[in-house]
Design a binder for these strands. Structure first.
Lengths: 227, 227
DNA sequence: CGTGTGTGTGACGGTTATGTGAAAGAAATA
DNA sequence: TATTTCTTTCACATAACCGTCACACACACG
């Protein structure tokens, strides 16, 4: 699965250079030329990462970043600020409103790509091989093993496990899982999650002692090898 | 857990608009209509953030802010000043007495919400890792350890401990705890707090000498490593 | 050293959250 | 189309937790 990168940048030439390079690298891209458009695209497509120009015609990058970070759907999306200025002060302000990284223009494309890769990895996004404890998942071949043994999962169980593997030990509430695994616009009962967790448990723990899924009463579930 | 925001504002209509919007956003709110009442509420409930009107009947917002910032229990609570005036001079004076941010009325609610969120994050509220003495809590994994040893807590005990860890050593009255942990609209007996404190004590002190919870007779409880 | 008020805590009944098999339909596959 | 796999919901069983009470104890104060 290709990672989707949203570019918010008003200079068209600059944006095209970025798109060209990112797509050559195997990413999908979207482009917004104004802050407003950018924010809409961010909500619409839920990109895996956002490249954000500091200076935009209608709103400062700072403000855009603040809005991205204050919306629950996008708050965990890594944001890399692009800027011509390079004062420490700006940098601090940028990171202050929640930007994850900060690259000064004119940047070398190579450096930018490196930062993107690092931020994506950091957010646990787009990885092909996911692992936790003795569980391995290859997202390209859709193969899951535990301690070398093949595990067969249904589509939903696969997506749940993938979500878990992207943030091991994190507790996911039922509604967060519904958002993430089923999609924000789908309506299904909370308890449906329980049933799928049950199936995932059965598949994962078959032939094994240890239950890798922890139930946190009144909070949700987590992938966790400790008790 | 919902953050608690204290609104100090004498115009009732204005206060209600704020309360409505904040609660829609998932915050808890308290409202004080005068400076004096506001300061009392601040001490009683230890809000996570304070919205402070510049003009109050009994005392200037500046003075209120100074008092908030000079009291040990509240000095680290972020204060956002609300004002009709917009001169640079006022802004400077506001920030001068320790206000953390400054919003000019009539403000867009969206902007105010963004500022609130940013100030909360900035103050480290909603932090993932909380620690005091040898107790560690990770709110994302819902895991609590003492001196490295895993501690199992029920949901309510977890929330109480979290409240304690957010303001170590602060003495919480039973009613303040009920508001924070149970929610303002729930009615349960004061003494129920005692029972849960007892359960928290048992879980936390199992295998340990030192009792980390201090009882302050006729006042409440506190997380405190000293006697 | 007795009295009143505040606190610690075991026990208990009731409530809520979770685990899970089954059923019925939807979607994918052949 | 026939068959298989998957999803969702429901109902019930079970486990975990909650709030209250009652009584014992601690403390402050005269």
């Amino acid at each position: 699965m290709k990672a989707l990168i949203l570019i918010i940048e008003d200079e068209h030439a600059q944006a095209q250079i970025l798109q060209y390079n990112l797509e050559a690298e195997g990413y999908q891209t979207k482009h917004g030329a104004t802050a407003e458009e950018g924010l809409l695209l961010a909500k619409e497509y839920n990109p895996d990462l956002i490249l954000l120009d500091w200076m935009l015609p209608d709103m400062s990058g700072i403000e855009v970043c603040r809005q991205i970070k204050s919306h629950p759907d996008t708050e965990s999306t890594p944001v890399i600020m692009l800027t011509a200025r390079g004062t420490e002060d700006d940098k601090i302000r940028g990171l202050d409103v929640g930007a994850n990284d900060y690259v000064v223009k004119p940047h070398s494309i190579k450096e930018l790509l490196a930062r993107i890769k690092s931020n994506l990895r950091n957010a646990g996004i787009g990885k092909v091989e996911l692992a936790y404890a003795d569980v391995l998942m290859n997202t390209e071949t859709h193969r899951v093993t535990r301690n070398g043994k093949n595990i067969k999962l249904g589509p939903t169980e696969f997506r749940i496990l993938r979500t878990f593997l992207e943030r091991p030990q994190k507790v996911w509430s039922r509604s967060a899982l519904l958002d993430r695994v089923w999609g924000a616009d789908i309506y299904v009962d909370d308890r449906t999650v329980d049933v799928h967790i049950g199936r995932l448990r059965r598949a994962l723990n078959k032939d094994f002692e240890k239950d890798l899924i922890r139930t946190i009463r009144s909070a949700g579930y987590a992938l966790d090898k400790d008790d």
